[in-house]
Write a protein that binds this DNA or RNA. Structure first.
Lengths: 207, 207
DNA sequence: GTTAAAAAGTGAAAAAATTCACTGATAAAG
DNA sequence: CTTTATCAGTGAATTTTTTCACTTTTTAAC
């Protein structure tokens, strides 16, 4: 199945919202409500969900549990995945302790930093290592995802190491774009770009 | 001028890349290179830049400084903007000290937290206040942007306060979608959704 | 039991975004 | 001074994405 990026984005948001509803014990949800939660229209949501193929009519909407399970199976979101964080500065350590990853099926099983001092000082319940043992730990623990939170100038180098060690996807917080081979999935979160996006929108709106 | 979200995103990325090139002292850049940096094709980049209207042929490509200035003027990215951060937990304090905001024209001029204890303990060069003085400080300092880094359950409440206090845009790190009026620009960064996006992509690729 | 209302499913239409193919401009090379 | 290569500009074509209009299903109300 070929999915466009906007479709995948919506599906991830919808899945997250379903998870939330499920935890709250809510049983039914309409396409309208999912639309609101995912920032799309109800038509688009229904089209996205129709990728699942089956029909599940009900005048109360979709059954939260069932839809969540089906989306999870079709798009491989049910499987737990192991991730690591490279770069244990302010942001890296904040991510290391971000408990929601665990709840959401992403298990942070290692942190890495170049500085031995920093590693020794860190107080965290997650194992931390020097970057020099990155390849070894990734292989041993079966880590699929790498999160990069190092300073801009080392980001590419770290990405190369992660890829060589066998991760399949990278989430980078570095503002500079990283080059990765086609079979490695890559996404970057750039705080400045996000703020600029907002600023452009509201300033253009004003005229 | 009406701009689509993908266009704005690309423009923000291109602008950031131009800024980087400029700082490195590089004078010229081709549409191909900008395409690579922004994740688009050269055609799309040229279309985006053609929004600026003027023609600037040169067989070396665009002049970095000029293009950056023009993009900045047209899309209001040259103006410095003031922002605040609400919620000074791990993530909030990491953002408070994220120096790049300043370099990139976003001045973090205040931090807010509900806990007075936390405010007193914090070591930062940025002024921090209790949430109770949010409206006052935002008005006094002319803050246009609010960054929300509070726990999920308080996000909507904080957003409402920010909007009432007069911010024009909100960047939220809360996983749950926030409701805002149409004239307020809103973007959320959801770490789990981002990891899921990557996971869907690489797992679907495998078959 | 019949009717009405609520909601999903879906093929077609519309809209939007991207790519292409070609033009024009510039600068470097010979 | 002419030629050639490089690169941006742009209207048209294509592709993709979204929206619409209508159908079908289910459930609740009377």
């Amino acid at each position: 199945m070929k999915l466009s990026n906007p479709t995948i984005e919506r599906i991830c948001k919808i899945f997250g919202y379903l998870d939330l509803l499920d935890k709250k014990g809510i049983e039914f949800v309409s396409s309208r409500e999912l639309a609101k939660a995912s920032g799309a229209t109800e038509y688009t949501v229904r089209k996205d969900i129709s990728l699942l193929g089956a029909s599940r009519h009900d005048r109360k909407g979709y059954k939260v549990k069932i839809l969540k399970t089906e989306l999870g199976e079709t798009f491989h979101l049910n499987k737990k995945r192991k991730a690591c964080i490279v770069g244990l500065g302010r942001l890296g350590t904040a991510l290391l302790d971000y408990e929601k990853f665990q709840e959401d099926g992403f298990e942070i099983v290692a942190g890495f930093d170049r500085s031995i001092n920093k590693i020794e000082r860190l107080c965290t319940h997650i194992d931390v290592f020097p970057v020099s043992s990155l390849a070894e730990v990734i292989a041993q623990r079966g880590i699929e995802l790498g999160i990069i939170a190092v300073p801009q100038e080392s980001a590419q180098e770290v990405a190369d190491k992660l890829i060589e060690a066998g991760v399949k996807g990278i989430l980078s917080f570095s503002p500079e774009k990283i080059n990765v081979p086609k079979d490695i999935m890559y996404l970057d979160i750039d705080f400045t770009s996000s703020l600029r996006f907002i600023a452009v929108k509201f300033s253009m709106g004003e005229g």
